[in-house]
């Protein structure tokens, strides 16, 4: 038996919104310690890794490991039927072909149950090595979203250059070019840890897709090292994270 109750549906809505543009279907791997997800987008350019620890939930029970293959569009439709302040319980028996989502209003006077058919998804799991990033930048998530949006109107590629002086985003296309530089401030809203300067080029479309996770967190962490994927990490309160990895563009 698997059963997990969240005090507010808003958190689940934000998580699904952060995933569903990049993944149409995905498997939630549920174990005693919590819920994990790992999946590549259809083009195998990026990878999403999510963790929700069991202490994120008001109630959590997972008798044996269970994988719940879900269509995220369908899940999103079900979540639209709920109010943000409803409590939500996700449950499934051990050998399930359906998952149940039960919503309870804040005053407990309304309950609503939905069943979603599970999908049997054959998902490849990759081992993500511990990486010592040469540059780690923590910045306001809203600022990162704004920069990604502004960059993608100029060019398909975004160059990110990070050094002790700051982090610089550049895009250059037919209509012209854009450069945005953020320096570390005494206010502490942009925090840079730089061992070695790094410059890498990425597909702006994917960066913009990652910023769907902005409502989850005030801050976003960006990790860069030469010749490895970019890390864009949004914490989920104190209970987990969504990490996006994006393969760099390389010289042809």
């Amino acid at each position: 038996m698997f059963e997990a109750r969240l005090g507010s549906t808003t958190l689940l809505k934000k998580i699904v919104d952060a995933l569903r543009e990049i993944l149409s279907q995905s498997t939630l791997d549920c174990s005693d310690s919590g819920i994990q997800l790992q999946a590549m987008d259809n083009s195998h350019v990026s990878l999403v890794s999510m963790l929700l620890q069991n202490d994120c939930f008001e109630k959590y029970r997972c008798d044996r490991n269970i994988s719940l293959g879900l269509d995220l569009k369908s899940l999103s439709k079900v979540l639209k039927c709920a109010s943000g302040d409803d409590a939500v319980t996700i449950s499934a028996p051990d050998k399930a072909d359906k998952v149940q989502l039960s919503f309870e209003s804040a005053g407990k006077e309304r309950t609503a149950d939905y069943e979603l058919r599970l999908l049997n998804l054959d998902q490849e799991h990759l081992g993500i090595p511990e990486t010592d990033y040469s540059c780690v930048v923590i910045m306001p998530a809203i600022e990162f979203a704004r920069i990604c949006r502004d960059m993608t109107s100029f060019s398909e590629s975004v160059v990110i250059a990070c050094s002790k002086d700051g982090i610089k985003f550049s895009a250059s296309g037919e209509m012209g070019s854009a450069n945005i530089k953020l320096s570390q401030t005494s206010k502490g809203d942009v925090d840079l840890t730089v061992e070695e300067p790094v410059t890498l080029s990425f597909a702006g479309r994917y960066l913009s897709t990652f910023t769907r996770a902005t409502p989850l967190s005030e801050k976003v962490k960006i990790g860069m090292a030469a010749d490895v994927p970019l890390l864009v990490e949004y914490p989920i309160e104190d209970y987990g994270y969504i990490r996006y990895y994006l393969a760099p563009k390389v010289d042809d």
């Binding site: 350019v45 990026s46 490895v228 990895y245 563009k249 390389v250 010289d251």
Partner: peptide
Amino acid sequence: KTKQSNISSFFTKK
């Protein structure tokens, strides 16, 4: 000229 690399080429298959 740059080309997009594939994410799975950076991580090990489990």
